[in-house]
């Protein structure tokens, strides 16, 4: 894993950027008549799907962390490495 993955990411990200812009740019030219509210609300709902999936993941992780690693959790009885150093 280590080093090559980071290089891979540094290459992958610009590629994604290039691809998405080129693909959109060569799509059908602007000036076409569309129904504004349908396009805008469509984009909004797509955004909401993404926001709520990530939201569920992040809130799930936070809830797990808060519940699992709370002080009063019996599994947490032993003290972590950092403690006891005064």
């Amino acid at each position: 894993m280590g080093i090559p993955l980071r290089q891979a990411l540094l290459v992958a990200i610009p590629l994604v950027v290039m691809f998405s812009i080129l693909q959109a740019a060569f799509a059908q030219e602007a000036g076409k008549v569309i129904i504004n509210r349908v396009e805008v609300w469509g984009l909004f709902y797509k955004g909401m799907v993404i926001a709520f999936t990530i939201g569920a993941i992040v809130m799930g992780v936070i809830a797990y962390v808060v519940f699992r690693f709370r002080e009063s959790n019996p599994k947490n009885a032993s003290r972590t490495s950092m403690e006891g150093r005064h």
Partner: peptide, 19 residues
């Protein structure tokens, strides 16, 4: 979140506010 992972979190008022 990564800092809280694996800790023994004391949810006193300061920590509750920050979380």
């Amino acid at each position: 979140i990564a800092t809280m992972w694996g800790g023994r979190i004391k949810f006193a008022t300061p920590m509750s506010f920050v979380v």
